[in-house]
């Protein structure tokens, strides 16, 4: 793959922002952006404009019965693992935490709400690589039992770029007293995963995705 200069990227920027750049040109542009904050800023601002343009499209009501057809087509088994580990009441609680995350992450990447006695508690932290890149989030929710929900939208990129194709990964959970447990992780296309823990929420100090050699790919610090 060729290395681009800033002046060469300028030529590709509009199409990159519009989402129409493909193949080698796109790969070269992305590679340049990874090491050029000023070009990154330009592309981000133009991409935001292109995305917002879609919000200006005309509204047209679809044919009658559309929503029923959509609901009928939703797969029932897709989220079964999430439903096992997170009841409806729990996700309602989780979204309350999520709303706060937008602000809290910006302030430092960690949110902990212990809740009052007997009430649900939440904690959330950003998943970061060794370089400090944010590749996702980990949510902890305790309401009788502690649930962990991990979302890694940047996972596919990380693995495609650096990871061995045949490696297996596990989630390493470190408690505040230094105890380590490993659980195999199977990440679907949407790179999310949920599990119930036999731990109090406050006992979780660190959550990390590690490979078979113990290399830490990304981690979220809670304590």
């Amino acid at each position: 793959m060729s290395t681009l200069e800033c002046t060469e990227l300028v030529d590709l920027t509009p199409e990159l922002a519009a989402g129409n750049l493909c193949g080698e040109e796109r790969a070269a542009a992305i590679a340049h952006l990874e090491s050029c904050p000023s070009c990154q800023q330009v592309v981000n601002s133009l991409t935001t404009v292109a995305d917002r343009l879609l919000l200006l499209s005309r509204r047209v009501e679809p044919p009658a019965g559309f929503e029923q057809r959509v609901l009928a087509a939703l797969p029932t088994e897709l989220h079964s693992y999430r439903q096992r580990s997170m009841s409806r009441r729990r996700w309602v609680a989780l979204i309350a935490a999520t709303a706060a995350l937008v602000l809290t992450f910006a302030a430092g990447g960690l949110l902990i709400d212990r809740g009052l006695a007997g009430e649900p508690a939440f904690a959330a932290a950003e998943m970061r690589t060794a370089n400090g890149d944010v590749v996702g989030q980990v949510f902890l929710h305790e309401d009788g039992q502690t649930s962990l929900f991990m979302s890694l939208p940047g996972w596919a990129d990380q693995i495609q770029r650096y990871g061995p194709a045949d490696s297996t990964y596990s989630l390493r959970i470190e408690t505040t007293d230094g105890h380590l447990t490993n659980q195999p992780v199977t990440l679907g296309d949407d790179a999310s995963w949920a599990v119930q823990l036999d731990l109090d929420l406050g006992a979780v100090a660190n959550v990390a995705v590690v490979d078979a050699d113990g290399y830490v790919w990304c981690q979220a610090q809670f304590a």
């Binding site: 879609l54 919000l55 005309r58 959509v70 609901l71 989220h79 079964s80 999430r82 709303a99």
Partner: peptide, 29 residues
């Protein structure tokens, strides 16, 4: 954002609300 969190948790009622809220915009585009 709460509706999308609902979808992530597999809640079909959240999906129904999301569809009703955005169907004209999505279909129009």
């Amino acid at each position: 954002e709460a509706l999308v969190a609902g979808l992530a948790a597999g809640d079909r009622e959240a999906a129904l609300v999301l569809v009703r809220r955005f169907q004209a915009r999505v279909y129009g585009l």
